[in-house]
Simulated assay, not measured.
Amino acid sequence: MAKSTVAVIDYGMGNLHSVASALAHVADNVKVVVTADAETIMRADRVIFPGVGAIRDCMAEIGRLGVDQVVAEVAASKPMLAICVGMQALMHSSEENNGVACLGLLPGEVKFFGDPLTGDNGEKLKVPHMGWNQLHQTVDHPLWAGIEQDSRFYFVHSYYVQTTDLSLIAATADYGVNIHAALYRDNVFAAQCHPEKSSTAGLQLLGNFLRWDGQS
């Protein structure tokens, strides 16, 4: 049986080593390719769109390398998983860096947590939101297969997604505000957390993605 291929988009702003290592750990008869080459990405069976750092720098590199066009084509044609800033880049805009236009592939914006940020009992919460938090699943999606409700995933972010289409929410998390922590539409799934750093639950999500046919 020929190996299927998953392409991890390399535009210089993702935690590529961790993502590729986690994929290799769960991959069964799957070839993992880290690349910025458009043709290689489009030939892959599945695509991961990662991202870390400031959205202004990410969007600058995405535009410079033509990754914006590639991501738009992938989002219209094959299973894609966007992670952290990769998820944020799919939105219309971000408040970070005094306002940045994003790819506009999903409706909504990326907002700052605020300072001060307080929890339900009035305690001050640190920004960035860094560490483990529960994901509350809101839909029965193939990427949640084998993952218990309210499982803990690892987060590192100072800005959070709010979609204007609530039907796209796949999971929420709470950190002083209600975070739209995972979104889905057709063959696209996006997560604010880092599944590659999220132990058993995160590896299960990545394994589910490698078996996903893009149908919700």
Rank of each mutant, 00 (worst) to 15 (best):
H157I: 10
H157Q: 08
H157D: 03
S158Y: 08
S158G: 13
Y159W: 13
Y160M: 04
Q162N: 13
Q162P: 09
Q162C: 14
T163G: 02
T164P: 05
D165S: 13
D165C: 07
L166M: 12
S167Y: 09
L168R: 12
I169W: 09
A170T: 05
A171R: 01
A171Y: 05
T172N: 10
A173V: 08
D174G: 05
D174L: 07
D174H: 15
Y175N: 02
Y175M: 01
Y175F: 10
V177S: 09
V177R: 12
N178L: 14
N178V: 15
I179Q: 08
H180Q: 06
H180G: 06
A181M: 06
A181E: 03
A181Y: 06
A181C: 08
A182S: 13
L183S: 06
Y184P: 00
R185W: 11
R185F: 15
D186G: 05
N187P: 04
N187F: 10
N187K: 14
V188Q: 04
V188R: 06
F189S: 06
A190C: 04
Q192S: 08
Q192V: 02
Q192A: 05
Q192E: 07
Q192Y: 02
C193V: 01
C193Y: 11
C193S: 12
H194K: 06
H194L: 02
H194Y: 04
H194D: 01
H194A: 01
P195C: 04
E196Y: 07
K197G: 00
K197T: 00
S198L: 00
S198C: 05
S198A: 03
S199V: 05
S199R: 13
A201M: 07
G202E: 03
G202L: 04
Q204E: 12
L205G: 03
G207E: 10
G207Y: 08
N208L: 07
